[in-house]
Amino acid sequence: MSAPVPIRSPLPAALAGHNVLIVGGSSGIGLAAARLLSEAGAGLCLVAREETRLKEAAGSLGDGARVRVMAADVTDEVRLAEVFERAGPLDHVLLTAGAATRAPLADAAPSRVRDSFDVRFWGGYATARAAAGRLPAGGSITFMSGVYTVRPIAGAAAAIASGAACEGLARALAVELAPRRVRVNAVRSGVVDTPPLRRRLGVAQADPAQADAAVAEAGRHLPLGRFGTAEETAAAALFVMAHPYVTGSVLTVDGGQSLA
């Protein structure tokens, strides 16, 4: 029988000295998590498809950050295995990469929306397979999903289903990996002010002040009067990483959007 999961502080400060691999770490929630983890004293390995963006992301963390970058497509299992070989010892894995092609069902042939599952679900599945045997007792894998899994909108069925599938995967793997004392969770975020949201609102290339005003206006109807920030969602990921007694959970951080 394996020893119980180690007891340690459940606060993010306990992540100091831990090593975290973030898939999708070049922007948005992944980069925000990297910033918080670096401030907490964790070492980082950022993974995304575009090496240039990865290097820019690493540079934005400051000179004191312990960070490595590796370009990889999460759907390429051979490359993914190479990433984990080169990454060295890891304590936690966070998956924020995702594709969310939107189209009404009548217009959405499987080939058009398959990337929603290929990146978020199958990419997450492959990453979990690569990570599971490398993580220590008390280590963790954290998936991302979204509020639309419980409050769906029209025209995004495949993207929403892929998020729901990741929640199911997190629960199933929490049971399967429990004998290794590896924890698995998901963070269900609300709509977050990230580059994809600004692209959907058509203000990605707008003057920053105008873009901020458009985002603020679009989020005014929500229960807390605005969209969430990438940092707010990332902080939830740090919570489940740091807390040694949280597994099989789906932590909702949506500012009440699922109630609206």
Rank of each mutant, 00 (worst) to 15 (best):
T142V: 13
T142M: 01
P152Q: 12
Y125A: 15
S162Q: 05
V187S: 08
T127G: 03
A174Q: 05
A128E: 03
I141T: 03
T142S: 08
L135M: 04
T142H: 01
A154T: 14
V147I: 15
A132D: 02
V192E: 09
A137I: 00
G133N: 06
A132W: 01
W122P: 03
P152A: 13
A170D: 11
Y148P: 00
R199F: 10
E176V: 12
Y125S: 13
A157Q: 06
L169N: 00
R181Y: 09
I160W: 13
L169R: 01
A126M: 11
M144W: 04
P179Q: 10
A165Y: 06
A186E: 07
D193E: 12
A126E: 09
L135G: 06
R151L: 15
S140H: 00
F117C: 12
V192S: 06
V192F: 09
L197D: 10
I153Y: 11
A137H: 02
G139E: 07
G138F: 05
R151M: 14
R198D: 12
D118V: 10
R171M: 10
R199I: 14
G190L: 09
E176W: 07
L177Y: 04
R180W: 08
T142R: 00
A137M: 04
L197S: 10
S140R: 01
A178H: 08
I160T: 15
G163F: 02
T149F: 00
A137D: 02
P195N: 00
D118T: 12
A164M: 09
N185K: 04
L197H: 05
T149E: 04
A130M: 08
A159R: 03
P196E: 07
G123L: 04
P136M: 10
A170Y: 06
N185R: 05
G168E: 06
G146K: 01
A186Q: 08
R199D: 15
D118E: 15
A158T: 07
G155Y: 05
G190M: 09
G123A: 05
V187L: 11
R199Y: 11
V150D: 03
A186W: 02
L197I: 05
A164P: 03
F117N: 13
V175M: 13
C166S: 14
I160L: 12
G133W: 04
R183P: 01
M144H: 10
V119D: 12
T127P: 04
L173K: 06
A137N: 03
A126D: 13
M144S: 14
Y125H: 15
S189G: 15
R180T: 11
S145Q: 04
